[in-house]
């Protein structure tokens, strides 16, 4: 590939990117065919690329290549996933879909076991331990001034955790007029938890907005960089 062809390819790629970006921006005026075309192109390209990746990363190197060129042990090793893959394909038929149930059960079982094991060891226990350690008066490596700040942070964390859990406690007893109501103290704690939840959702929304704004900036920078040489060749 010479320089001219490289520049041409870059120009074509830039034009495609420019038009696709404008077509996506057209959604600001409402749903329109340009937006739909761009979305469909994106979904199709992603699916095609995923298929190519699956072929070159999984199917050929890990299934077919050992089955064709591998030894006896490799063939026996890939025979089990090959059978399960064939059973999964039977899921497309309504009459024979039950043949794929064992493969699905195997995948779900293994996935659930892996996720639960990882969650218990990697998230639940460490998070509980972190919540406990947040109220440590004498943490290692911290001075007296930082200890009060740590304890205050730990208290906020404790209140936030308990109040949030209280908010999701929906047990209630029938009150006046038969309307179920939670106990007053639980209602107060739940309202505090509601505040923590609102702050958390606000932070998440802010992060989503910043992520989207970064994408907008990236696209506008692309457009500017693409159009500037065209508009101002000099």
């Amino acid at each position: 590939m010479n320089l001219e062809s490289s520049a041409l390819m870059e120009l074509i790629g830039g034009l495609v990117g420019f038009f696709l970006t404008v077509m996506v921006f057209s959604y600001i005026l409402g749903d329109n065919p340009f937006f739909r075309v761009s979305i469909n192109l994106f979904i199709g390209a992603s699916a095609g690329y995923a298929l190519i990746v699956a072929w070159y990363s999984v199917i050929w190197p890990q299934l077919l290549s050992p089955l064709i060129f591998g030894g006896q042990s490799e063939r026996l090793f890939v025979l089990f996933p090959l059978i399960f893959a064939g059973l999964l394909l039977l899921k497309m038929s309504s009459r024979l879909s039950w043949f794929g149930s064992p493969a699905v059960a195997f995948l779900v079982g293994v996935g659930a076991a892996t996720a639960v094991g990882g969650a218990v060891i990697g998230t639940i226990f460490p998070q509980v331990l972190a919540a406990i350690n947040a109220l440590d008066w004498n943490p290692a490596g911290r001075g007296p001034g930082e200890a009060w700040l740590q304890v205050a942070s730990g208290l906020v964390l404790l209140v936030g955790t308990t109040s949030t859990l209280a908010y999701f406690h929906f047990g209630a007893r029938p009150g006046l007029g038969g309307v179920p109501r939670r106990s007053p103290w639980l209602e107060i704690v739940a309202q505090i938890g509601k505040g923590f939840i609102a702050v958390t959702l606000g932070a998440t929304f802010a992060g989503a907005f910043l992520a989207a704004f970064a994408a907008l900036v990236e696209r506008l920078e692309f457009l500017r960089e693409f159009l500037t040489p065209l508009i101002f060749p000099g």
Binding site: G122, A203, T204, G207
Partner: peptide, 19 residues
């Protein structure tokens, strides 16, 4: 991580032990 994933990931960094 993205800004929108920070509230979930940060406890793994702020916690003790630090994951």
């Amino acid at each position: 991580v993205s800004a929108q994933a920070e509230p979930v990931v940060r406890p793994y960094y702020e916690g003790t032990p630090r994951l």
